[in-house]
């Protein structure tokens, strides 16, 4: 029997969710039971395990804001509602994961550096990134006209993305307290991770990436449902005027 595209999409989403949560559970086993504990220096010991979810959170935030950037350009060019929904969902998830970065980082820094926060380039540029996309979400909530808020938000989404390379390369461009891994200028610099630690790290990285894909697909689906509810509510209020105009149709 042939399945409808909606049923197929729903089944794929469930599969993606199962893979993401399954791999996340596996990565927790690797993080806590397979990866060896780092030497007991400030920031090392059990504290070093924060790295296994702090870095993947930062990666997902980069990925999410890259999706906002691309979708916003596509929306400004085409005005298709699906790009706006994608950008909005990705921004929400990006803000969530940047929040996690900004929470788990200081929790590591307090015992490692003796302070919660330093106004250094990496930390400050990350805070600016978080505030920019928080502003993006706030801007979207200001108006009920989806086309207007979509266009305004798209501009902020594109400009905000300029901070992502600054966040990433800040540890190379400026002298910062934030640890950095191997760089093209110093490729021999060891990350200090052995086989089990790399296994835990990359499993967490893939799990977080799948989780991002699942969250984004779910968020976009909710956006489509919201559009459909708005459309039907307006039609119910004005039965004599025919189909509602001005309500975006998700494609």
């Amino acid at each position: 029997m042939a399945t409808s595209p909606t049923t197929r999409r729903s089944r794929n989403l469930k599969l993606l969710g199962s893979a993401a949560w399954g791999l996340l559970a596996l990565s927790l086993i690797f993080i806590f039971f397979v990866a060896r504990e780092a030497d007991d220096y400030p920031g090392g010991g059990p504290l070093q395990r924060i790295f296994y979810f702090h870095v993947p959170s930062a990666w997902v935030a980069y990925l999410a804001f890259a999706v906002v950037f691309i979708s916003s350009i596509a929306y400004l060019r085409t005005s298709e509602r699906r790009w706006d929904l994608l950008a909005h969902g990705a921004a929400e998830i990006g803000v969530l994961f940047t929040s996690l970065v900004l929470i788990t980082g200081p929790i590591w820094a307090r015992p490692a550096w003796g302070t919660w926060w330093q106004w250094d380039a990496r930390l400050t540029s990350t805070l600016i990134l978080w505030l920019t996309y928080l502003g993006y979400l706030f801007l979207r909530s200001l108006t009920r006209d989806p086309a207007r808020s979509g266009r305004l938000a798209a501009v902020v989404g594109i400009i905000g993305f300029l901070d992502v390379p600054i966040v990433h390369f800040s540890v190379r461009w400026w002298r910062t307290l934030h640890p950095s891994g191997p760089t093209p200028a110093d490729p021999t610099r060891s990350s200090g991770l052995g086989g089990p630690e790399l296994l835990a790290f990359f499993t967490a990285l893939v799990a977080f990436t799948l989780l991002f894909a699942w969250l984004l697909a779910t968020r976009v689906r909710i956006g489509r449902l919201e559009d459909e509810v708005d459309r039907l509510e307006i039609e119910a209020e004005r039965p004599d005027r025919g189909p509602a105009s001005g309500i975006p149709v998700s494609t």
Binding site: P46, L47, R49, I50, F53, I103, I107, W108, R110, P111
Partner: peptide, 20 residues
């Protein structure tokens, strides 16, 4: 302790993702 901070960070991350 270091273990306490690590558990705190882990719980915060879990609460954030779980809450969303």
């Amino acid at each position: 302790s270091s273990l306490g901070w690590m558990i705190t960070a882990f719980l915060c991350a879990g609460a954030g993702i779980g809450g969303y």
